[in-house]
Design a binder for these strands. Structure first.
Length: 877
RNA sequence: GCCGCUGUGGCGGAAUUGGCAGACGCAAGGGACUUAAAAUCCCUCGGGGGGCAACUCCCGUACCGGUUCAAUUCCGGUCAGCGGCACCA
């Protein structure tokens, strides 16, 4: 005894990791053998192991959460390799920006992902569950300007804190060996590689254009990064600047990005709608209007070619290139020029606001309607956009509300070409444009047919007469990727006076971000001011040249990181094609709705480009998407500025990671907003205590018995156990309803308390044991440390993380008795308890014989009796 | 304006295929244990009425209407909130 207690002392203190518990540790073995002068007997070994099966009286998470985290890490429990013997499952949460401190609003998404990953692992999947850092970005650079810390130092310190003090303490089952950090050159060099490949294919190009400019971030923004005219990051009012910028030709994939939305059947409809709206496909025709008295043609785009006969004027954008030629030699030329100058001085955002006053001026020129030869005046309109369509529009006041108002304002004619069958339209008395369907009128050979039919016929006519063609217009613009900031991937381009624009050759990649730069926050970006970075030699002629000093939008980094996780150490390519084809697609992607357009659109685009580069054979990266709700507290989104943040470390210290996880899962279904409630956290903490106390109370007794099997079929707790296994499994499988899964576990625990309250006989102990086993397994994805500790105390030595998920016994969930609800005229009047399998006829008879039913039917014969199999009887009078 | 989503107790939320509305939890109230408190355990808990009581009746899922033996669930309309798109030709 002295020896063995000495051994257990060694196990608990010296080898706290309990690594090789199937055998005593070497030191114990040695000591034991030394004292007894023989190898330990089986009996003694069992005693050693039994030490492990002791259970603390009270649930004290502090005693084991860290230990399990360390064990998982040491044993590489979550490290994965390609394994053809198992089905693979790729579970991914959108990776975080390392902003410093996260709060429980951020950790919710990781817990959701972790529950899924742990569940799938127990279901026998080979689960890839990686984590990394979207590490480039403005806050790091702003910190550098404000506090004089280098962005690299700031970022790396934040990553260390978030990883070690926050995420790891949540017990998240990541394969940390696959950690990806986008600001490291082994990652961003591939951004540059993609850039060069895209440049070679004409998918990356530079052009001078009006771009969105955030004065506060002092950089350009993509269209997707402007929300209601404000910067997506800092909410400053976005202005416009004419700059020479790099673009990715996402519009080349517009058609596919739109049409393959239909294949994303496991994405929320909301996200798909937003993407479809954003891409914005308009189908119509382009029509050439000859300018009277000149050889020039003015091309317009319209989706309403059925109204072409009703055109009474045309409008062009102030920036339209034909403007000068239209107004030369006209008497109002100067007046038009001053109007145009005034319009162009106005800010784009203001000009394109709906409430902005629509103004125009007649140019003095006329165009000829190619369908009816009609002569229509050409106006300049401040509301016509050069970026959409052709920069020129036809105006049909009778059938377009905006044109109608413009015509009324400037006394332009109105011609009805689609007649309303219910109430004849008369231009003089019209109060608004008629935009419904109707019958063609005033439209030459097309009169009398419906306007919907006329659309096709007129489009045919235009194409046959070679006066235009069918055309498609997109709302989607090319993705502006140049950023005038330091902390991002340098754009790998060299400008040579002799050779022009030259991409950096592959062998010279990466173009490293220089570390010795100054952060003043004034003037140009640190790169543009760094001589040693800027000055270089031309890779073609060897002459002096200069580097592009803009960096790439950080959304480039996140557009392909999910592929990098498949082979994060790959040094010769962005990723290993074979590994990627094993792991991809991402089976489950989880992230916030704020990326419905931004990141999710860019990542889809990149995947298609990568496919066309021949590196990957899929069309879409994310099979199934879950957009989790935000975490709110005191009625507001959790945020530093609102002062309502709850850091996970605080909850972990007070209640433990398992409570934090369980509450996040229980308080609301994942896609809905979650109200953080301190009392709710207490409640889930109490629940874990309740389980612990129950198991502690019966620990010794149940350790002596084997779990019950099918022979216990008739036992109510056995039945509840299997109902719960079924319910929890189905709730997770069906739309990840973790809240109801946890509720089911609570119900089961309540029933276990009832079951054990009156003492347990020999038949009941095994049933309780099997209930405890099942409960421990079922709660493992939600509260993994808690489950591991209990699982070990129940005599299991291989950890619960890879233990098989329990199966329910279909026979056990069938009730022996059924409760039939009896209604009279649709109102519940009685309930009957009948043996399972009672025929409909017998159920009906029993219902009609019921005293309560007789009272309500007053012994009158029922008009009709409806019996729902084993559930309900409705007696209709 | 167009499109989408949501609306259930004091609160978070259940109700899976049209079949017992309010599971589970929080808060609240009452009780047990305790010198006391904490912890724990038990009971009550949508609204209104009747009964000494076991109990029982009526109303109730934003609002109005419809389909149905039966509607939180399906259909039509209204209102409110949230989100997306919007001078897009």
């Amino acid at each position: 005894m002295i020896i063995t207690s000495f051994c257990s002392y060694i196990i608990f203190t010296h080898d706290n990791s309990r690594k090789n518990l199937a055998k005593p540790c070497h030191l114990c073995y040695f000591l034991f053998s030394f004292h007894s002068r023989r190898a330990p007997s089986e009996k003694a070994l069992f005693w050693l192991r039994a030490q492990e099966d002791l259970l603390e009286e009270r649930y004290d998470f502090k005693k084991f959460e860290e230990r399990w985290q360390r064990l998982w890490e040491e044993q590489k429990t979550f490290k994965v390799f390609e394994d053809a013997s198992k089905p693979k499952y790729y579970c991914l949460e959108m990776f975080p920006y390392p902003s410093g401190r996260i709060h429980v609003g951020h950790t919710r998404v990781y817990v959701i992902g972790d529950v899924i990953a742990r569940y799938k692992r127990m279901r026998g999947f080979n689960v890839l569950h990686p984590m990394g850092w979207d590490a480039f970005g403005l806050p790091a650079e702003n910190a550098a300007i404000k506090h004089g810390i280098h962005p690299s130092k700031w970022t790396i310190e934040n990553i260390a804190y978030m990883r070690d003090s926050q995420l790891k303490r949540m017990g998240l089952s990541y394969d940390w060996d696959r950690e990806v950090t986008t600001c490291f050159e082994d990652y961003y060099r591939w951004n540059q590689w993609f850039f060069v490949k895209m440049y070679e294919r004409g998918l990356a190009y530079k052009k001078l254009s009006y771009v969105n400019w955030c004065p506060s971030c002092s950089t350009v923004l993509a269209n997707e990064q402007v929300e209601n005219g404000l910067c997506w990051r800092c909410s400053s009012v976005v202005t416009h600047k004419e700059l020479d910028q790099w673009f990715f030709k996402i519009t080349a994939y517009a058609e596919e990005l739109l049409s393959s939305c239909d294949s994303l059947t496991e994405w929320p409809e909301r996200v798909l709608t937003m993407q479809r709206n954003w891409i914005g496909k308009s189908i119509g025709v382009e029509v050439d209007f000859r300018v009277e008295g000149s050889g020039e043609k003015l091309t317009i785009f319209t989706t309403r070619q059925d109204t072409l006969f009703g055109v009474t004027f045309m409008s062009i954008a102030p920036e339209h290139p034909m403007l000068e030629s239209l107004i030369t030699d006209t008497k109002q030329a100067d007046e038009v020029r001053s109007f145009v100058q005034r319009a162009m001085r106005e800010d784009k955002a203001a000009r394109t606001d709906e409430k902005h006053e629509k103004e125009g001026i007649f140019t003095g020129a006329y165009a000829i309607n190619p369908l009816n030869g009609g002569k229509v005046p050409i106006w300049v309109g401040n509301f016509v956009l050069m970026e959409y369509g052709t920069g020129a529009i036809m105006s049909v006041p009778a059938h377009d509300q905006r044109d109608f108002e413009f015509a009324k304002k400037y006394a332009l004619p109105i011609v009805v070409v689609i007649q309303n069958l219910e109430k004849t339209l008369v231009p003089e008395t019209m109060k608004q444009a008629y935009v419904e369907d109707g019958i063609m009128t005033n439209s030459g050979q097309f009169n009398g047919i419906s306007n919907t039919a006329a659309k096709e016929k007129i489009a045919d006519h235009i194409e046959q007469g070679k006066i235009g063609k069918r055309a498609v217009n997109w709302r989607l613009r090319d993705w502006g990727v140049s950023r005038q900031r330091y902390w991002g991937t340098p754009i790998p381009i060299i400008y040579c006076e002799k050779c022009g624009t030259i991409p950096v050759p592959e062998k010279d990649l990466p173009v490293r971000l220089p570390m010795d730069v100054e952060f003043t926050g004034k003037g140009l970006s640190p790169l543009a001011e760094s001589k040693s970075f800027k000055e270089t030699t031309c890779p073609q002629c060897g002459g002096s040249a200069r580097r592009e000093t803009d960096t790439m939008d950080t959304f480039v980094d996140s557009s392909w990181y999910f592929l990098r996780y498949c082979s994060p150490k790959e040094g010769t390519a962005p990723f290993d094609t074979k590994e990627a084809s094993y792991w991809m697609n991402v089976d489950q992607y989880i992230g916030g709705i704020e990326h419905a357009v931004l990141h999710l659109l860019y990542a889809r685009f990149f995947t298609k480009v990568i496919r066309d580069l021949g590196l990957y054979d899929g069309d879409e990266p994310f099979q199934r998407l879950l957009t989790q709700g935000m975490v709110v507290k005191d009625g507001a989104k959790m945020s530093k500025s609102k002062g309502n943040v709850v850091p996970p470390d605080m909850i972990i210290s007070k209640y433990g990671a398992d409570t934090a996880r369980l509450f996040s899962m229980f308080a609301a279904p994942p896609e809905r907003d979650l109200e953080w409630s301190d009392q709710g956290v207490e409640g889930t903490y109490r629940f874990l205590h309740r389980i612990w106390t129950l198991i502690y109370k019966h620990h010794q007794a149940i350790m002596k018995v084997k779990p019950a099997g099918r022979e216990a079929k008739g036992d109510p707790l056995y039945r509840k156990t299997h109902i719960t296994i079924k319910k929890v499994t189905e709730d997770i499988e069906r739309e990840f309803h973790f809240n109801t899964a946890v509720a089911a576990l609570m119900e089961m625990v309540n029933e276990m308390y009832d079951y054990a309250s009156g003492g347990l006989n020999d038949g009941q102990l095994p049933v309780l044991r099997s209930a405890i086993d099942a409960l421990t397994l079922l709660i493992a994805p939600f509260a993994p440390h808690f489950a591991e500790e209990l699982w070990e105390s129940l005599g299991n030595r291989n950890g619960i993380a890879n233990a098989p998920w329990p199966q329910y016994d279909p026979e056990a969930v069938i009730a022996l008795e059924i409760t039939v609800v009896v209604q009279v005229n649709g109102k519940v009047r009685s309930k009957l308890t009948l043996p399972a399998g009672t025929s409909d006829k017998d159920i009906e008879a029993a219902a009609l014989a019921d005293a309560k039913v007789k009272e309500f039917t007053d012994n009158k014969p029922p008009k009709k009796v409806i019996v729902v199999q084993g559930k309900l009887v409705n007696v209709v009078l």
